[in-house]
Structures are given as C-alpha cells and as structure tokens.
Design a protein around this nucleic acid. Structure first.
Lengths: 236, 236
DNA sequence: GAGTGGTCTAGACCACAAT
DNA sequence: TTGTGGTCTAGACCACTCC
C-alpha cells in the first residue's frame, strides 16, 4: 500500500474510512458493506489487513458479521455511560450528531423546606435554578432540571448556556468530591412531556444526581429522558 | 498446531490458557509474560496467532504492552458500583426484609434468530430459559427473565431455584469475564404487569445484563421492576 | 546490537450462506 | 457452486527499549 500518511497503520486508515462513510450515510443500518476481498483491492492491502480493521469495528459494535453472508452496519443505539459525569452535549457529538439546547428557565430562588433539606442549608438560602432541554439531531432527548448552590458557584446565572452546558461549566468551576445518583422509571408530568414532545403515557428514564464540592452539596439535577429514545449502558 | 479441541480456534485456546494462568497466579500484576515468539513456539503456532490472542487480551485490559519492552499483566481495576452482580435475594435480606421467589418457567429452548444473534451462536442452539418473580415482604419487586447458554452451564435445568437464585448459581459455576448492561424505562407487557401485580400503565425500570464467561456469552437477563417500588442508586 | 512488539503480505484451507 | 467470513502460516520490515 502506498502510505499517503506514513504514520497511520493501514488497518487504522481503513477503520477510519469506513467509520466516516457510515456516519456520512453511505451505508445505513443493516446495509451490507463490501466484502473483505473487495476492500482489500480498493485499499491495495492484503485481506488480513482488511480483516483486522473489520474485526475491530465488529468488536466495537459498529458492524456485525455473519459467516457466509456478509458484513453489515450494526443498529445504532442511543446510549450513555452512567458512571462518568459526561456532558450530554459531548456525548451527542461523540456520536457524530448535532446538539442543540433550549433554555427554559434560569433564575435565583429561595430554597423551600424540601430543597433546603436536600442541600443541607437553611430554608430561604439562595439557589439557582435552570431548566434546559437538550436535542440530538433536533429530537428532544433530555430535560435537565438543575438546582445549584449559590455558595459554590455564585456566577452561575451569568453563564451563557447556549455555548456551554451547566455540566461543563460546573465541572470546570467546582472540583468534584462525590456523586450520588438514583435512577428510576416514571411517567412524565404534563410539563415534562410537553418539553420532550412525547405523550404523557410514555415511560421516562429519570436520573437524579447530587454532587458534592467544597464540602457542600453543589448541585442537584434531575434528568428526564424519553424511555423510547434513551437508555443507559455500560460494561466492565 | 495439534488441535486437542478441534472446534476452538488456536488464538482462543491461547487466550483461555493465559487467562487461566494469570488467574491461577502464575504471573502477578506487573509481571512480564513470555514474548510472542516464545509463546508461538510453546503453542506450536505462528507468531501472528499469538499476536491476535495477546492483542485481544490487551484490548480487554487484561494485559498491557510496551513496544520494545514486553507484555505485562495489567493492574486490576476497581469496578464501578452501579450494577454489581448482586443477588436480589441478598439485597433484600440486607434490608432486613423477607425474600421469596416464584418459578414461572424453566426449560430448554432452541435459539431464535434474535437470541442466536445476541448469544453469538447459531439459530437453533440450545438455550435454557427461566422466568422467576422475586418478592420483598410478599410484594413483587422483580421479574427475572433469563436466558442461559447451555454450553456454559449444561446443568442449569437441574438446579433448585427456590433455595438459590440463578444469579448465585451462575456466579459460582461460571467465572465472570465481563458484563454489559443497559437500563431503560418502558411500559410493561400485559404478562409482566400481571406477574408484578401492577397496572399496565405503570412505568417499569428494566435492567438488561449480558455476561461473558469462557469466551462466550453466558447469560442474558432482563429484569423488570415496578417504577414505583424500585430504583437503582449508588455513589462514588 | 539483541530482543521486543507493530504491522503487513500472499497465499491457504475451512465452514457457512445464498443460489 | 460461488461467494462470504474465520482462521492460520511463515516469512518480512520497522520502531522501539534495554543493555
């Protein structure tokens, strides 16, 4: 093979090329991609080299193979890794999709009894409240209902959350000390259903997350996801 | 290579052997394992075959490689807390509550196309299927719909699942190599709703878990929980 | 310089799927 | 029967580490 980029191994070039073509829509989910021998000819490499590229893409769940039949583009799944605190925007972009967010609310409020208990502060303590809807390729995928302790990030209200998610801002500003999370399945409230553009009888996957920083409860966020369009996944 | 077990590819035999020796303590964390050429000689295969075995173990984080230096046993990682393989019975008892289970089904079935794909076996491959409902203080809290690869645990059907959960049995019988999980929120089927004694319009929290053992997919289990009575929680 | 891993070749034989 | 993937070989050259 003539190495146009001498540093990158041929199998990696093939992987990158196939991935790019799949994301560009050259082949859709379930479509067959060319056979190993065909690709070997196109890339000017031996079949074993193509085999390695495809085998690795298969183990990465990008492709599926059926012996004697062919190699197919796997079903894409919306998935999130639960364990890490990852920005939803980054997660969406890593799937090669477009992210957009709508700011529905951003203001300071005094803590109610309930919120005060959750943040371990006195009732009336100032908290910041933001409600943002996140879209993946213009499909609503998450309502982020967030409360932030003003003692930890006094500048919260001044941020521009169209260019940066609250998560990204908070990770940068407040070093994380700990996380508690809770996952449940519930039916959405009318308000949530409207923001997600789903029927009121569709189950939602809800992730509550409370983070500690500087020895205080820094934020408490409730993330609502349409059950049909979102799931958490991981492995170890 | 003389195939003592003609069905198992040489690279898989090498992977299994190395894994077993590492688990048996032949090499500890950080120790170097023999070079590719050495192993090729020992196993009587070409270097490329050894290379594939080691490369895959490296991508599975069992080994680490340093070019020009050698191949080493990787540090064991601490597992994230989210979805530990924990027996539901143990979890309930740890809350001081009473656990009871109802066996709804236990039999062998041939893999459908869909199941075959999930287990990476041929359609028609024998699988075991069990459906069990778990109760906490006589309240239904989980429907456990489990498929087991008969190649991994041929004795599955002979177990008494009133004294031991499938989970407890499998953990004891098949050493775990990896876990994939997926969490979603859905509305129950009529059958599931009946087994859980909940209305059909109550959201369910569903955990899918697929475990690998002996280089195969060992089990695939779907656990249904009433959204109102169960949630996942953790911290780190 | 000797030893290691990283990559690649140009064939080969087989099992399986589609026809 | 043809085409596909699954595996394997016996070399090769290179980059890198260690001595």
């Amino acid at each position: 093979m003539k190495p146009s980029k001498p540093d990158i191994p041929a199998f990696q070039v093939i992987k990158d090329t196939l991935l790019k073509e799949i994301q560009a829509g050259k082949w859709k989910e379930g479509d067959a991609i060319p056979a190993e021998t065909t690709l070997a000819g196109q890339f000017g490499v031996s079949r074993m080299t193509v085999n390695r590229a495809i085998r690795e893409l298969t183990s990465e769940q990008i492709l599926t193979r059926i012996q004697g039949s062919g190699t197919y583009v796997a079903q894409q799944k919306y998935q999130a890794t639960l364990v890490e605190i990852k920005s939803i925007a980054e997660e969406i972009r890593s799937r090669g999709h477009a992210h957009r967010s709508e700011l529905h609310e951003l203001k300071a409020e005094a803590a109610t009894e309930l919120l005060a208990a959750e943040f371990q502060v006195k009732a009336g303590h100032p908290l910041f409240h933001s409600v943002i809807v996140h879209f993946e390729n213009e499909v609503a995928i998450q309502v982020e209902d967030r409360w932030v302790n003003s003692s930890v990030t006094p500048e919260y209200l001044q941020q521009d959350f169209s260019t940066m998610t609250p998560n990204e801002y908070l990770v940068a500003v407040a070093p994380l000390q700990g996380v508690d999370y809770r996952i449940e399945a519930v039916l959405p409230t009318r308000l949530i259903a409207d923001m997600l553009h789903i029927p009121a009888k569709e189950a939602c996957l809800v992730l509550h997350r409370k983070t500690r920083s500087q020895g205080m409860i820094a934020t408490s966020v409730t993330m609502w996801h349409p059950g049909k369009r979102y799931q958490f996944a991981g492995s170890f």
